[in-house]
C-alpha cells in the first residue's frame, strides 16, 4: 500500500504550530518561575515595609501640633513612598497568587482615592475625577485598587512632567465602566501590541509587570481591559465590569450568564 505523504506546506504549518506551542510553554514556565520568586520576595519585603509604616504612624500621632510643617511634609513623603513600594510588592505577590478575589459591594470613589494614595506622581500632573456619586462595584476592592494604581501610575510615568490624567466612571443598567485617560505621548502600534506581555516595558527602571497584573486582577473580578493609544494622542485604559442583579436592584440581560459563570 502506498504510504500517504503530507504536503510540504502542511509540514511547514505543523512545524510552525509546534514552534508556537513550544514558545507558549516556555513563556508559561518562565511566568510560573517568576511568579514563585516574586511571591516569596514580596513576603519578605512586606515585613520591613510594615514596620516602617507603623513607625511613621506612631510619629504622626505623637508629633506636637506646633511641629514644623516641613517635618510633617517629610513624614508624608515617606508614607507616599512606602505606599508606592507596597503597590510593587502587591504586584509581585499577585503574580504567583491563586487566591480567589474576596468580592463584595465596594464604593468606587473610595477605591479610586485609595489607588491615588498608592502612586507617586510629579506635582505638575493634574488628576481630574468624574465618578458617578455612590457608584458601587461588586469586586475585591484591594484588587481593583491595585489594578487602578498600576494604570494611573503608568499614565503618570508617561506624562513625565506636565499633563492630565482623567478617571471617569460611568454606569448603565448592565455595565460599570472605569476609564483612565492621559494626554501623554501615547504608544505606537508595536508597543500597544505588547502592553500586556510580562516583563515588557519601555522605561528602564520599571518592572514591566504592571499591565500583566492589571489584566489578571480585572479578569479575576469579572472585568475586561481595553487599551487605546496613538502616538501624540495619549492613552486610554478602559475597564468594563458587568453589573449584577443585586447591584442594580433589577434584573439585567447579562446577569444570568455571569451568575452561572460564578457558579
Amino acid at each position: 500500500m502506498k504510504k500517504r505523504t503530507r504536503s510540504g506546506k502542511t509540514k511547514a504549518a505543523d512545524g510552525q504550530l509546534a514552534l508556537q506551542l513550544g514558545e507558549e510553554r516556555l513563556k508559561a514556565e518562565r511566568l510560573a518561575t517568576i511568579g514563585l520568586l516574586a511571591s516569596r520576595l514580596s513576603g519578605e519585603l512586606r515585613q520591613p515595609l510594615s514596620v516602617i509604616r507603623n513607625a511613621i504612624y506612631f510619629l504622626n500621632i505623637h508629633l506636637s501640633t506646633d511641629v514644623d510643617d516641613k517635618v510633617r511634609k517629610h513624614l508624608g513623603i515617606m508614607l507616599r513612598e512606602i505606599n508606592g513600594a507596597t503597590r510593587l510588592v502587591g504586584n509581585l505577590s499577585y503574580l504567583g497568587s491563586t487566591r480567589p478575589p474576596e468580592r463584595g459591594m465596594s464604593d468606587i470613589e473610595v477605591i479610586v482615592a485609595a489607588a491615588l494614595d498608592h502612586i507617586v506622581r510629579p506635582p505638575e500632573v493634574r488628576i481630574r475625577l468624574a465618578i458617578k456619586p455612590d457608584a458601587m462595584l461588586f469586586c475585591d476592592p484591594s484588587q481593583v485598587r491595585l489594578a487602578l494604581a498600576n494604570i494611573i501610575s503608568n499614565s503618570a510615568q508617561a506624562l513625565q512632567s506636565e499633563g492630565e490624567i482623567k478617571v471617569i466612571c460611568t454606569q448603565t443598567a448592565t455595565e460599570t465602566r472605569i476609564e483612565v485617560t492621559d494626554n501623554g505621548p501615547g504608544m505606537t502600534r508595536d508597543v500597544l501590541a505588547q502592553v500586556f506581555e510580562p516583563l515588557f516595558t519601555t522605561a528602564e527602571h520599571r518592572t514591566g509587570l504592571g499591565m500583566t497584573i492589571v489584566r489578571h486582577l480585572v479578569g479575576a473580578n469579572g472585568g475586561t481591559v481595553e487599551v487605546k493609544s496613538e502616538p501624540g494622542k495619549g492613552t486610554t485604559v478602559l475597564l468594563r465590569f458587568a453589573r449584577f442583579e443585586h447591584e442594580t436592584g433589577f434584573p439585567t440581560k447579562t446577569n444570568s450568564a455571569h451568575q452561572a459563570k460564578e457558579g
Partner: peptide, 15 residues
C-alpha cells in the same frame, strides 16, 4: 518573631 513589628505595634496600641 519580627522585633520591629513588636516594638512599633506595642507602642501604637499603648498610645
Amino acid at each position: 518573631d519580627n522585633l520591629g513589628m513588636l516594638e512599633t505595634l506595642s507602642d501604637i496600641l499603648e498610645s
